[in-house]
Computed example of a mutant assay.
Amino acid sequence: MAVNGRSRVPTRRDLAEEELMLDTYRGRRYCKQHPSQQMIPLGVADVCPLEHSAAGEQPVDQ
Rank of each mutant, 00 (worst) to 15 (best):
E17L: 14
V9C: 08
V47G: 00
R29M: 12
P41F: 09
Q33V: 02
V44G: 00
Q37G: 00
D23P: 00
Y30L: 07
L15N: 03
Y30M: 09
G56H: 13
H52G: 04
L15S: 00
R28A: 04
H34F: 04
E17C: 02
M1C: 03
M39F: 02
Q58Y: 02
D23L: 12
V3E: 06
P10R: 11
R29P: 00
R29F: 06
R29V: 07
I40G: 00
I40A: 05
P49H: 04
S7R: 15
R28P: 00
T11D: 07
R13A: 14
G43P: 11
Y30F: 15
V9W: 12
V44M: 03
R28T: 05
D61V: 12
M1A: 08
A55C: 12
G5E: 01
T11Q: 07
R26Q: 13
G56I: 14
L20G: 01
G56Y: 14
Q62G: 02
G5V: 03
D23G: 09
G56A: 11
D61A: 14
P59W: 04
P59I: 04
Q33K: 11
C48S: 02
M1Q: 05
P35V: 11
C31L: 09
E19G: 00
G5A: 01
A55N: 10
P10S: 07
Y25R: 13
G56S: 10
Y30P: 02
L15R: 15
E18C: 03
S36K: 13
H52C: 12
L15V: 13
Y25D: 05
E19R: 15
A54Q: 10
G27E: 11
E17S: 02
Y30D: 01
Q38R: 15
Y25A: 05
G43K: 10
T24Q: 13
V3A: 03
T24E: 11
D61S: 12
C48D: 01
C48M: 04
E51C: 03
R12D: 15
H34S: 01
A55P: 00
G43A: 08
R29K: 15
L42C: 08
L20I: 13
S7Q: 12
P35F: 09
Y30Q: 07
Q38W: 10
V44T: 10
E17M: 06
Q58A: 06
E17R: 08
M21P: 00
Q37V: 04
P35N: 08
M39E: 05
M1L: 06
A2F: 10
A55W: 05
E19H: 12
R6N: 01
Y25E: 09
R13Q: 14
G56F: 14
Y25Q: 11
H52Q: 11
G27Y: 14
M1S: 07
L15E: 06
C31H: 05
R29L: 07
V60E: 09
P35T: 09
V3T: 13
S53L: 04
K32V: 06
R13P: 00
D23T: 11
R13T: 13
E57D: 07
P10A: 10
A45P: 00
P41Q: 07
A45R: 12
G43L: 08
V44E: 07
V47C: 03
V9E: 12
Y30H: 13
G27Q: 13
G56D: 07
H34N: 04
I40S: 05
R6Q: 01
H52R: 08
Q58K: 03
R26M: 13
A54T: 14
R26V: 15
Q33L: 15
R8W: 11
E57V: 13
G43N: 09
L15W: 00
L50F: 10
M39R: 03
A45Q: 08
